[in-house]
Nucleic acid binder design. Structure first.
Length: 265
DNA sequence: AACGGAACCTGAAAGC
DNA sequence: TGCTTTCAGGTTCCGT
């Protein structure tokens, strides 16, 4: 279940594995991931092309090809790009080979997406993205203005991809803990200094997670045996790292939120 | 226009 | 032990 940091790690790995290399072979399974586009459309798009660059914006990836075309990728909830040799691995949905290097897209739940763009034009979801906290940074004044215009809670507003591209359920919870803001506060009620704390919280949380997770393979926290690198996410009952009050869990907009009832106000 | 909720999938863990 | 329910870091679509 990737958010900005996990997708950034995926981008760095893809860059290292495929950057500048020519795709010599590829295959794409017929799944909902390719949404109606024929597998041969993807094969034709990538085979023989060089991977000019790997870009990330929010939770989206883009492999730009020497032809001017592009392969867009969203990891959904359980998508991963992994480097593997040998036969297809379990849940493998696509494969890109560049000589000796073989990279596979694995996605059990199939919420991810691959989009073939022969002209390189980005999909609507990409064009609708707001500023990326890591690459663009968030402007506190702009963010406050956006937050003023909604009736939603701050937690739900932060997960809006047009407000902060790449922030999801975990980063929103972690950022609000760092900012000492309650997730159930109305987004429009935040003062300028509180919005500034949220901006700092988002950037700090993303950088921290990136440092914890940078590796040639991503492990998602709900996978068996994975450890939890987060401060409050998934830590109900554990002491708040700041004030030792037990962390509380509640549901908000259908998603679990974790927060400290004492120091987040 | 904006919001809440269901739907889309599969697997692991928790509950009985 | 085995069956059932719940939950999972995503987006999209549909109804109000």
């Amino acid at each position: 279940m990737p958010e900005l940091p996990e997708v950034e790690v995926a981008a760095r790995n893809l860059r290292a594995w495929l950057g500048g290399k020519r795709i010599t072979a590829a295959s794409f399974a017929t799944t909902r991931i390719i949404r109606g586009q024929a597998p041969r459309t993807f094969v034709r798009l990538v085979v023989g092309q060089r991977v000019r660059e790997v870009e990330r914006r929010g939770k989206w990836l883009c492999l730009r090809l020497s032809s001017g075309g592009a392969l867009y990728s969203h990891l959904g909830m359980t998508g991963k790009w992994v480097r593997r040799d040998g036969p297809a691995v379990r849940w493998e949905r696509a494969r890109l080979d560049a000589g000796e290097v073989s990279v596979r897209y694995v996605d059990p739940r199939q919420f991810g997406r691959l989009i073939a763009a022969p002209d390189g034009a980005p999909p609507e979801a990409w064009r609708a993205l707001g500023p990326d906290p890591l690459t663009d940074g968030l402007d506190p004044a702009w963010l406050r203005e956006r937050l003023q215009r909604t009736g939603r809670s701050i937690k739900e507003a932060l997960m809006d991809q047009s407000i902060a591209a790449g922030v999801g359920n975990i980063q929103a919870a972690e950022a609000l803990w760092r900012a000492r803001i309650s997730p159930i506060r109305a987004a429009s009620s935040l003062s300028p200094s509180e919005v500034r704390r949220v901006v700092d919280g988002i950037e700090a949380s993303i950088r921290f997670t990136l440092g914890e997770e940078e590796a040639p393979e991503i492990t998602y926290v709900e996978e068996p045996g994975a450890d939890n690198p987060f401060l409050v996410y998934g830590k109900a009952g554990a002491p708040c790292p700041r004030c030792r009050t037990p962390i509380r869990k509640r549901t908000q907009g259908g998603r679990a939120t974790f927060y400290c009832p004492r120091c987040q106000t």
